[in-house]
């Protein structure tokens, strides 16, 4: 196996609000290999966006990365722990936009409103690469062409508000790709788009990835999108990754009851009209008020009374490589092994 591009272990991002702490990200482990698409999927409030922001150290205050490692294998061969960097320091800034770029759900928040698309892209290129203004401009045209922007030379002079939703998304992707990052973090980039536009943007991301060989960390709540784009999937629930597996295993051999519940509750095209959907009962608990034991147990249909509400499951690696946090899959931890002995 090749060396991973990004290795996250035990990452915790906490928000201290008025004496209480919200554990938005609470001990997440994740690996992204070069050229791979990893989907981070979960419902609102599960911490997936904060997880993404933690990587680039752009967590909004009062949030803070409080523990864990984010090891990035830099182009130079050096390994940096992003979690240990000063969020305002020079090193993280040389990584942001250059080696790790990010796109957002709402392009207007990422694109400056008072600068043309062209000057934003050329600025980004000149910030990271030592090229002339003219060269940067040529590269900007090239990247706009690559994201399928019609008439790129004219669009250089356009302001973001002059573009439609889909075109803005393309412009933002172009901006993110302008320095040929090795990792693209995409935070719900298609959620605000119509399905036809979403399909086009997903195709675009997939094509660009194949062409440029970058890895993509794709954050979404839509399992349909996951199935379309992911190589491997991490399912998050209340700040933790509850299951991590190859995309096919997630959809056809899901181990965690939450993943299974999610899959059963999505309406699919092709089912008969009126066919009942299964649901996960209850709702995501308030992060102030996290259930004891496994945080999913109050909603879990396979809950073992007396165990799941007491024991916090640890990460279990199954023989096929799937990692799951569920007592159903823990090989009798209490009987055979002391807590923590398992990987």
């Amino acid at each position: 196996m090749t060396q991973p591009l990004l290795e996250i272990s035990g990452l915790k991002t906490h928000f201290g609000v008025g004496g209480t702490t919200i554990r938005a990200v609470d001990g997440v482990d994740l690996v992204v290999n070069p050229g791979e698409t990893v989907c981070l999927v979960g419902e609102s409030g599960c911490g997936k966006s904060m997880m993404a922001r933690s990587i680039l150290r752009i967590v909004p205050p009062p949030g803070q990365v409080t523990a864990g490692q984010i090891n990035l294998h830099r182009q130079s061969g050096k390994v940096v722990d992003l979690a240990a960097l000063d969020p305002k320091g020079a090193e993280i800034r040389s990584i942001r936009g250059r080696e790790v770029a990010m796109i957002f759900q709402e392009p207007m928040t990422a694109l400056g409103p008072v600068q043309t698309i062209g000057s934003q892209i050329t600025d980004a290129i000149q910030l990271h690469l030592k090229v002339s203004r003219k060269e940067a401009r040529n590269q900007a045209i090239e990247v706009l062409t690559r994201v399928g922007m019609p008439r790129p030379e004219q669009r250089l002079e356009a302001y973001p508000f002059q573009l439609s939703g889909g075109m803005r998304q393309r412009a933002m992707i172009a901006l993110a790709l302008s320095c040929q990052p090795r990792l693209l973090i995409a935070d719900e980039p298609t959620t605000a788009l119509d399905v036809t536009t979403q399909a086009v943007i997903l195709d675009l991301i997939r094509d660009l990835q194949a062409e440029m060989g970058m890895a993509v960390l794709f954050i979404t709540h839509d399992l349909g999108v996951v199935a379309e784009i992911a190589d491997s999937v991490a399912v998050m629930y209340l700040g933790r990754v509850v299951e991590r597996a190859a995309v096919d295993d997630i959809f056809h051999n899901a181990r965690h009851p939450y993943t299974r519940g999610l899959l059963r509750s999505i309406p699919r095209l092709g089912i008969r009209v009126g066919e009942e959907l299964d649901t996960i009962e209850g709702m995501v608990p308030n992060p102030f008020n996290r259930p004891s034991g496994c945080s999913f147990h109050p909603r879990c249909v396979e809950m073992i009374p007396g165990r799941c509400d007491r024991v916090d499951p640890s990460r279990t690696r199954l023989p096929d490589g799937t990692e799951v946090r569920c007592l159903l899959h823990e090989p009798h931890r209490q009987e055979t092994a002391p807590a923590g002995a398992l990987q």
């Binding site: 439609s164 979403q198 399909a199 997903l202 839509d222 199935a227």
Partner: peptide
Amino acid sequence: EALLSAVPRPDPRVRGTGERVRLAGEV
């Protein structure tokens, strides 16, 4: 047809099967 074709299918095994209609241009 295009609308139906654009809906993501929640099954990685059908990825890339069948011709997917992609709409050019804007609404």
